[in-house]
Design a protein around this nucleic acid. Structure first.
Lengths: 109, 109
DNA sequence: CCGATGGCCCTTGCTTTACGATGCTTAGAC
DNA sequence: GTCTAAGCATCGTAAAGCAAGGGCCATCGG
């Protein structure tokens, strides 16, 4: 994977991941990796600042919880109402981006 | 358009654009913009450094020419053989990237 | 009871790269 | 000779993912 390739698309991926249910950091990394066939291998230094950005913007909400299986409390992130809206916006923006790229590499124009 | 969205994909767009024929700077900007319905509006400060990168890597070759319509000489860039190879590689990489994104935002997983 | 281990969370500095603004060079018009 | 315009090039800035390191807490082994 190319690091630069991910820039500008990470927020979309995180919002979309949380759209299917709340998760904590380690889970997000695992799920993103498995959902993309191992293509996106997020690092902690990538994930946590991104989560904090999204939380600051009110798109997701973090809450420390103790899991049923015990262990230390983990910070579980949940998509908020405005986060659902933002997901829709970012999805549309990605479709525009994707369509624009196809317009060049696809048509040979 | 989001600036960050373009990161890591610009080289692909430039190679693909030159794949349909040699062009000079101003032409590339115009063609990319029209081929994407105005979505990608490249700036000079974005284009020229990128062209120099690609030229340094041997993927494109620049040559000053005087156009039939006269005027100052313009630097016409042509896709090289290794540039054609690179285009194929980058195209595949984009397909992987796109598939990975779809795996997350599409399936809702 | 106490130290070691591991998972999870967070932070700091680095690197890459698109962008904005600015300047230079050349050719043609007057 | 002077002036204008198009195209080419460059410098500084900012955004964001990455690598590396540190701290905390619960569990495990001695």
């Amino acid at each position: 994977m190319d690091a630069q390739q991910l820039k500008g698309h990470l927020d979309l991926l995180l919002l979309a991941t949380l759209d299917s249910g709340p998760r904590y950091g380690g889970q997000i990394i695992t799920d993103v990796q498995s959902a993309t066939g191992g293509y996106f291998a997020l690092r902690e230094g990538t994930l946590y600042p991104a989560l904090h950005r999204l939380e600051k913007q009110g798109f997701i909400a973090g809450d420390f919880q103790v899991l049923p299986r015990g262990g230390s409390p983990v910070k579980v992130y949940t998509l908020t109402a405005s986060g659902t809206e933002e997901l829709k916006v970012q999805r549309d923006r990605y479709e525009q981006f994707s369509g624009a790229v196809r317009g060049i590499i696809g048509g040979g124009v």
